[in-house]
């Protein structure tokens, strides 16, 4: 039985804002299905009472003082942008 369907992959690709052409979708679905099928072995590992690890180091409370640091020259930041309008980054119209 397959783990993921074409519809699943399309839904997730939409969430991730990636358009998949049909040909790509056709190769991806079985590949992702195989990988997720392999990954599913995790569910057979007993983890009762085990805490999840999101950080391997026992670090905590890392902060910095509330002090201003020099900003980036706005020209420098805006130069990176594929499109700009005066001092702004320009994007296709955002419909609210």
């Amino acid at each position: 039985m397959s783990v993921v369907t074409k519809q699943d992959v399309q839904h997730v690709a939409r969430l991730a804002r990636i358009r998949l052409e049909d040909a790509e979708l056709a190769t991806f679905v079985p590949q992702l299905d195989e990988i997720l099928g392999y990954v599913r072995q995790l569910q057979s590992v007993s983890t009762e009472g085990v805490e999840p690890t999101s950080h391997v180091l026992p670090l905590a409370n890392v902060t910095r003082p509330d002090a201003n640091q020099p900003c980036l020259d706005p020209e420098r930041a805006l130069r990176l942008a594929p499109a700009r309008h005066n001092q702004f980054v320009k994007v296709p119209k955002v419909i609210e």
């Binding site: 993921v4 969430l15 991730a16 804002r17 358009r19």
Partner: peptide, 22 residues
């Protein structure tokens, strides 16, 4: 968004992004 990420990423990057999103 969708075309930038479709054209900008290679196949393996797309596979991992989709897996991770899933």
């Amino acid at each position: 968004y969708e075309r930038t990420r479709d054209e900008g990423f290679g196949a393996e990057a797309k596979r991992r992004i989709i897996l991770g999103t899933y």
